[in-house]
Design a protein around this nucleic acid. Structure first.
Lengths: 189, 189
DNA sequence: TTGATTTCTTAACTCAAGTCAATGAAAAGG
DNA sequence: CCTTTTCATTGACTTGAGTTAAGAAATCAA
């Protein structure tokens, strides 16, 4: 009964054993090969995700260039903007590694809510949480130089540096791979 | 009964006349002089805001330097991260003009919710909305060069360029006033 | 209106990121 | 295992933002 999703939800709400059982049985879990596109530009997202294993990136494709905007790893939820707005997505979601992911749809979420009504109170709180996170990410970006952003990433998510290719890290930091190479060289002195 | 707040909430929910009355009477509205600091670094926010008139900026103060992260104008809500997290704020909120602002506290919001229970369903939706906005703002920032960000601002919020000093716009765009000056010169050809 | 203050622009120079190109290293595929 | 492809590094050069400093323009107050 010690599922990652139950752990995640427990951050927000105390769950009874019965509720935990319902949750553990309800999950729709799927495996994806590295390289799988979960969401494409132009498509309307009908799923939201919770990553059990692996790593997913979100990125724009602008005149053939990839612009990474986020990395999502174990224990992180992904709610595509398109899922909320019901409008075509402007960005992609892609598995950077083989992934195991729990998938939710409007229907499955509604059913879950029917079975465990107390989850309703979570909605606002989780979104508040994600909103605060998103603000901090934005604020960090506007506050810091590329070099500082790299150092910041080293501190806050060092795991990413080992599992994600450098040219994607560079894109995420808003610079070119060559520049990241030089930054690393500069810092290694 | 045509209050800005009722208009704002109507985007999310159909209100009855009675509910509109309650809302219109319940509001705590206050005036602030230009330059008033609504929230300071280190303080815990106990209020959230809805701007009826005027303009408010959010900014970090880093080694004496102002780093603007947002401008809020008429019809926009401000929910400080600190209000949600109950931790000391890392940024400031300041009135850039004389302002008329509707103020909410945990207590007043709870009371409002008691009087108009249907507002409960709004919580998640509004946060979802704000989250989607914040994501787009971040994504635009990471995608665009300073010059493109300025052009983007011209398109999306042209009003800001006329009512806000250029050195604050520059800060918001992540550059120095001198650079913004040069960008404007470049574009005027 | 005038003087003071704040904001905006311009110029000269520095520096870091972008670009283009070449080379090395590592990973993937047969 | 070797080959092929992808990824990372380095160098030479370009470009645009930062810095410093000065002066012009706009705003505000007396």
């Amino acid at each position: 009964m010690n599922s990652p999703i139950v752990n995640f939800l427990s951050k927000y709400i105390e769950l009874t054993n019965e509720e935990i059982n319902i949750l553990a049985n309800q999950n729709f879990i799927q495996s994806f090969k590295k390289g799988t596109i979960l969401l494409s530009e132009g498509k309307i997202a009908i799923e939201c995700y919770f990553i059990l294993k692996g790593c997913v990136s979100s990125y724009y494709l602008i005149e053939g260039n990839v612009k990474v905007t986020g990395f999502y790893t174990e224990q992180q939820p992904i709610t595509p903007v398109s899922y909320t707005t019901k409008k075509p997505s402007k960005y992609y979601l892609e598995c950077l590694e083989d992934c195991i992911i729990s998938i939710g749809t409007s229907e499955s979420n509604a059913e879950l809510l029917r079975k465990v009504p107390r989850l309703a109170s979570l909605g606002a709180t989780m979104f508040e949480d994600q909103l605060a996170n998103e603000r901090m990410k934005y604020d960090d970006f506007i506050k810091l130089s590329p070099e500082e952003r790299y150092q910041n990433l080293q501190k806050t998510r060092p795991d990413l540096l080992n599992r994600i290719p450098q040219y994607l890290i560079a894109s995420y930091l808003g610079i070119k791979p060559e520049s990241l190479s030089r930054i690393r060289k500069r810092l290694n002195k």
